[in-house]
Each structure stands twice: as structure tokens, then as C-alpha cells.
């Protein structure tokens, strides 16, 4: 019997897009459970629906039908304001292209989620500097994104995703723009700093070099989850 509490529960998720009269089905009845403290990877070919699924899980895209509960909350039924607050408090994002604000320095970038959550700027930047220390960038708090390497920028992005202690961290291709060593470092960092029993990580990736970091790997194809494996060796 599995006593680990359920973090994410997706049932019969369908998502269709209307592209100028033509209906495209991105997700076609996806079922997925993810436990607290788990690092789940979503893998599969381009266009299989991975990004659509994490967008729905993270509450930044509404499904066409089906239920998706995040920490027991059905985001689809929340009022827009409550959904925003839920997202601001509970979700951290790490993007493939880092998506740091180019005009802000590292500490300011990391402080953004705290500021959105109403923390005063000075306090937010102080805590951001501490978080940057944790990810090994204590000396680069004043650096602009353009002055940092790809790996450093991704570490800033991870610090930003963690600063407000969210319960879900969603990562979209966090290592695909990095070399092997930087990619491994980023994953080590994510696993060491981000993952604990109060948190869940969902990572969308094509990068087979990092599959071994996953607790489980959900393999997707054509809008379905076709296989859930516990290691890369079990993938189809």
C-alpha cells in the first residue's frame, strides 16, 4: 500500500485546439497520478502533448474536458483571482529558454515570485540573494542574464522557481540548451535543492541523459500516456 499523498491527479484530460476551423486534439484522455516527493518526467516525440499536459497541470491552460486536481484543488473550478493566487503560491517554473527578465539582475529576477506574492522588494531581494547562494551563484547576484552562461542562467531560473517554496515545480526542457556537464549539474541541483517530501517535480524533456534522475517516466505519444516506467530501461 502506497502511503505517499497524491499531489497531482489527472483523469480523462482532453485538450483540443481550434486552428482556423480545424480541430486539433493535443491530449486525448490522459490519466496520470503523481505523488508528493516524486520527480516525474514526461517524455515523448515533439507534438505528443507533453507541454500541453504540464500547462494544464500548472493551471496556465484550461483543458477541454476531464479533471485535473493539484494538491486536491481542481484549478478549472477556481475563480480566476483564486487560480492566480494558487499559482503564485504553489507553482514554480523552469523554462527551456530560462525566460529571465533581461533588464533585471540575478537577485531581482529571483525575487519576482516573492514580489508577486506581496513580499516587499528589499526583503524579497535579500531572500533572493540567499537562494542564489544555495544554487552556487552567491557572487553573481548583481549580474544581468546576458552576463551569465547558459548553465548559470538556468541556475538563476531554478532559484526563481524555488524562492517562494512552491509545492510543484514544473520544468520544461531544463537541460536541452545546456552541455552534458551543465545539464547534469542542473539536475543534481534540482534533485538536491528542489525535491523533498513536501514537493513534486514534473519535468518535460527530450534529454535521455537525465532520465536516470527520474522516479518515474511517463512516455507520451499522440496525446496519450502510453507507458509509465520507473527507469529509462523500461521505456518502449
Amino acid at each position: 500500500m502506497n502511503a505517499t499523498p497524491l499531489a497531482i491527479r489527472c483523469r480523462d484530460i482532453v485538450k483540443t485546439y481550434d486552428t482556423g476551423g480545424q480541430v486539433v486534439t493535443a491530449l486525448n484522455g490522459v490519466n496520470l497520478d503523481i505523488n508528493m516527493g516524486e520527480l516525474m518526467m514526461l517524455v515523448g516525440p515533439s507534438g505528443c502533448g507533453k507541454t500541453t499536459l504540464i500547462s494544464i497541470i500548472a493551471g496556465i491552460l484550461d483543458q477541454t474536458s476531464g479533471d485535473c486536481e493539484l494538491f486536491g484543488e481542481n484549478l478549472l473550478t477556481l475563480r480566476s483571482k483564486d487560480k492566480l493566487r494558487f499559482r503564485a503560491e504553489n507553482i514554480g517554473f523552469v523554462f527551456q529558454a530560462y525566460n529571465l527578465l533581461p533588464a533585471l539582475n540575478a537577485a531581482e529576477n529571483v525575487s519576482v515570485p516573492l514580489i508577486i506574492n506581496g513580499v516587499k522588494r528589499g526583503e524579497a531581494e535579500r531572500r533572493a540573494a540567499q537562494m542564489l547562494e544555495k544554487v552556487g551563484l552567491g557572487e553573481r547576484t548583481m549580474s544581468l542574464p546576458a552576463q551569465l552562461s547558459g548553465g548559470q542562467q538556468q541556475r538563476v531560473a531554478i532559484a526563481r522557481a524555488l524562492i517562494h517554496s512552491p509545492r510543484l515545480i514544473v520544468c520544461d526542457e531544463p537541460t536541452s540548451a545546456l552541455d552534458h556537464e551543465s545539464g547534469q549539474n542542473v539536475m543534481n541541483l534540482l534533485k538536491a535543492v528542489a525535491l523533498d517530501q513536501q514537493r513534486v517535480l514534473v519535468i518535460v524533456t527530450h534529454d535521455a541523459r537525465i532520465f536516470n534522475f527520474a522516479d518515474r517516466i511517463a512516455e507520451m505519444d499522440d496525446g496519450h500516456i502510453v507507458n509509465v516506467a520507473h527507469s529509462a530501461a523500461e521505456l518502449k
Partner: peptide, 16 residues
């Protein structure tokens, strides 16, 4: 727009 999108994703409201 992408930067505004990032802020939106992170929970910044339209009014903000």
C-alpha cells in the same frame, strides 16, 4: 510579451 507571459504564469494578474 514573453516576459509578461512569464509574469502571468507566475501568478501576476491582468490588473498588475
Amino acid at each position: 510579451l514573453r516576459q509578461f507571459g512569464v509574469l502571468k504564469a507566475m501568478g501576476a494578474s491582468n490588473s498588475t
